[in-house]
């Protein structure tokens, strides 16, 4: 069972709610994936106070935990303001913190991220920072009060999958007791399985499901892949060997040639 900031969750897949063909398909995808947490962005829906209320109430009706995010925020101030608004709108202290540093790659501004994380942690938020795989930044985020880290495995929406397995493995190794959720860049269920096999605690994804030809089918596939990867990690995988090892003993068998 995954435990995030004191809440036990049956699924290790967290799903984003943007870009689906319709809210109805989003709802079906959420169900099919088995996810227990969805993220929702406030940034663009904010214009005019609670003008996004209709969409938000559809999200609330999904019956899963909501992790609001600060997607699209480019400064500490914007991110902190959006987080406070999210707390009000969704009645949760959870916040997925994004402070974007580069418009093209949507790379996090790690300096602003640490600063915003500190402000929000002190304000009582349970912060889920979207970060890189940089170990020093990770340490700073932990110092700031974060109990969960969300490293990317590739740029948001790129569907590239884990582009730097070594960095992810080293992150897992450096922070054995910290909850690590791979966020962003996953394109296929096998990518999700791969990072789960590395021992990451969960994955968060959006585009790979929302923009699939059949988002519901893809959500189900990701749900299975996450489960498979986790179970494989827990079950102890065989390390690769250089020599062939027959699965059936050959000693004592008749030799025909």
């Amino acid at each position: 069972m995954l435990e995030l900031y004191g809440t036990e969750l049956p699924s290790r897949l967290l799903l984003g709610t943007a870009q689906y063909p319709s809210p109805a398909i989003l709802a079906e995808a959420v169900k099919a994936s088995g996810t227990s947490v969805v993220t929702v962005s406030l940034r663009r829906e904010m214009a005019g106070g609670r003008a996004g209320e209709k969409f938000w109430s559809l999200i609330r009706s999904l019956g899963v935990r909501i992790l609001p995010n600060t997607a699209g925020c480019h400064s500490v101030k914007e991110a902190v303001t959006t987080a406070k608004m999210a707390r009000e709108v969704f009645g949760t202290s959870w916040i997925k913190l994004e402070v974007i540093g580069n418009h093209d790659t949507l790379q996090p501004d790690v300096f602003g991220l640490v600063k915003a994380a500190r402000i929000l942690c002190e304000d009582g938020f349970d912060v889920f920072p979207y970060t890189t795989d940089d170990l020093v930044v990770a340490e700073r985020l932990l110092e700031a009060g974060c109990k969960v880290l969300m490293p990317w495995c590739a740029p948001i929406g790129s569907a590239l999958g884990p582009v730097n397995i070594t960095a992810l493995r080293s992150m897992r190794g450096h922070f054995p007791g910290v909850l690590l959720i791979v966020d962003a860049g996953l394109g296929r269920p096998s990518h999700a399985a791969t990072v789960m096999e590395l021992g990451f605690d969960a994955v968060l994804l959006n585009t790979a499901v929302a923009r699939a030809a059949d988002p519901v089918g893809m959500a189900r596939a990701f749900g299975k892949a996450v489960d498979a990867g986790r179970e494989a990690f827990s079950s102890g995988m065989l390390e690769p060997r250089d020599v062939a090892v027959p699965s059936t003993p050959t000693i004592g068998r008749a030799v025909f040639s």
């Binding site: 663009r44 829906e45 904010m46 214009a47 005019g48 106070g49 003008a51 996004g52 209320e53 209709k54 969409f55």
Partner: peptide, 10 residues
């Protein structure tokens, strides 16, 4: 945009 605001273009 998932919003009912009819305010000016942002």
């Amino acid at each position: 945009v998932e919003s009912q605001s009819a305010g000016p273009v942002t």
